[in-house]
Design a protein around this nucleic acid. Sequence first.
RNA 1: GGCGACAUAGCCAAGUGGUAAGGCAGAGGACUGCAAAUCCUUUAUCCCCGGUUCAAAUCCGGGUGUCGCCUCCA
Length: 480
Amino acid sequence: MQLYNTVTRKKEEFVPRDPGEVSIYVCGPTTYNYIHLGNARPLVVFDTIRRYFAYRGYRVKYIQNFTDIDDKIINRATEEGEDPINLARKYIEEFFIDSDALNVMRADVHPKVSEHLPEIIEMIENLISRGHAYQVDGDVYFDISSYRDYGKLSGRTLDDMQAGARVDVDQRKHHPMDFALWKAAKEGEPAWESPWGAGRPGWHIECSAMSLKYLGNNFDIHGGGHDLIFPHHENEIAQTEAATGQPFVRYWMHNGFITINQEKMSKSLGNFFLVREILAKFPSETVRFFLLSTHYRSPLDFDDEKLEAAGKGLERVKNCLRLIYESEKNSFADGGDTAGFLSLLDLRRREFETAMDDDFNTALAIGVLFELVGDINSYLHKAVPDSLVSSTALAGAVHLIKDINSVLGLFSLDEGGNILLEKNRPGGGELADGLLELIVRMRQDARSRKDWATSDNIRDGLKELGITLEDTPQGPRWKR
RNA sequence: GGCGACAUAGCCAAGUGGUAAGGCAGAGGACUGCAAAUCCUUUAUCCCCGGUUCAAAUCCGGGUGUCGCCUCCA
């Protein structure tokens, strides 16, 4: 497997720290609001990466943190007159509602900053004792000049950064780019006791402390959004390698940004979309499909038309599955060109793996999925009328689609492990289904009388209720 | 000002040296009572200029444009 490493700016062969195992840490959200589309991309992207490692037979250890102590949370809590930790807890619950909807698997551990103060404080003490950090009043800063490789991730030098400094420099710092490891508490803020007085951790130290705790030194993959490269991940590297004297992470991966109507998503532009707002308008599998239809490192522009187009594309995949399920009833142990079809399935599987092996090229992988759909459809197109559908062929097709789905995570499965096609669609239930069957039968009567007015009327009426009726040589079929 | 990314058909999007995957939309045909679904066929020389090469969307130089980071941000 090849993956693009932000540090080297090249694709590299993936070699895990421990054979057969992958350790992944992905920066999670600051929980002061419902998650937005920009949060959803890394969620879905790294979930897919994790799933592919599992598909490849790796044991995966996946950690995603919550930043539940932060200025933004404190500000928000102050506005709402609520306790910051409670506010954060609430949005952590909301986070899971959205991420579950997007079919994102839970991490093995979701560590919170508020529950890792001892680890954080210990790490800061370690940095101070090694001469990499210094205390000023109640604050502790990392001494950037003490770490020679500073800038290796983002590809900048200290000189570059000083030249471009746009922030007022705190005169107490040794170097303008020194960053806070510990912040002295201000009046009314949540605070924890520390050797430097009451305060709270700086933003970057949490990820270092928590990733080391759960994954150890030199773990495999650290991921996050492109914007975290600098300063967040740069600082993580500096403080961690300064503290441990060992390499921190083997591969750094960063997903590209989402834009809305070609503009950066931002509150001031009023184009800030929450995941649940989008899920109110589009099925979650469409959203996930859309997020994976572009390579994870490329920018991705969002608008309603693009999501609608994605939804129509996905419908093609679902139709194919419907055709398979429908044909299973009339399949035979063998028939037609089963061998030829099975070798085609093998080819598609190899293509899928090749695509994913190449830096998780989900866009290409989805292309392969569509090729597969075309293969299956055209097989059925020929085999169904001649009653030559092979159950072996169908089983192989379903197996492959399920395997691909286990990686892309587009469709949920029911209790029996079958792909759910009607998820999120209202109007199920025994009574409704029974009525529908009745109506369809009555329409068939009308059709046999060539009463086209009645039959078309029924079809149009059902369409308005969100039920599509299709007449086939094998009889009518309906779908929600 | 510093650092970096990208520019492929109407739209979305793969493709890093050998004459452009796939999806949406469109066109023609098959099937259908009509549709739908499905099948078959069809729609691009890859921002511009110059260079390297037998050969470039793919490498190099220049230009234009778009975007991101440098401050909280996925």
